[in-house]
């Protein structure tokens, strides 16, 4: 039984290295509010010219942020994202992706 569980755990780690398995949603929200909120608005709902980033699958957000971090262009405003994504650690990306997947906007 222990063997099966261990195998499953290893499989999950390999398959989803930055998945919600280790993600801290609260830390993701805190990181989001440091910089991302200025353009993408509260809870990632989008604002003005800046797209909605909430409600996306974790893998989607993770892939996007990793690509921006590498400096890979993904649209006309990629240059705005490069400096934002560059300092992000794997852990921060995982946390942000986990937070944004289910982020809901409540008027404060």
């Amino acid at each position: 039984m222990l063997k099966i569980f261990s195998s499953f755990f290893v499989f999950m780690i390999l398959a989803y290295p930055q998945s919600a398995l280790s993600a801290d949603i609260a830390a993701g929200e805190a990181r989001y509010k440091e910089t991302c909120i200025n353009c993408h608005g509260p809870a990632g709902k989008g604002a003005g010219s800046f797209p909605k980033v909430s409600g996306k699958e974790i893998s989607y957000t993770t892939d996007k942020l990793e690509a921006y971090r590498k400096g890979i262009k993904q649209g006309s405003n990629s240059f705005l994202m490069f400096p934002m994504a560059k300092p992000l650690t794997d852990e921060e990306i995982a946390n942000l992706a986990a937070y944004l997947e289910g982020a809901k906007y409540n008027v404060e």
Partner: peptide, 13 residues
């Protein structure tokens, strides 16, 4: 003011 915080400019909304 609808700041975006790019390139050293504080967002400052």
């Amino acid at each position: 003011i609808m700041g975006i915080g790019f390139s050293g400019t504080p967002a400052g909304s």
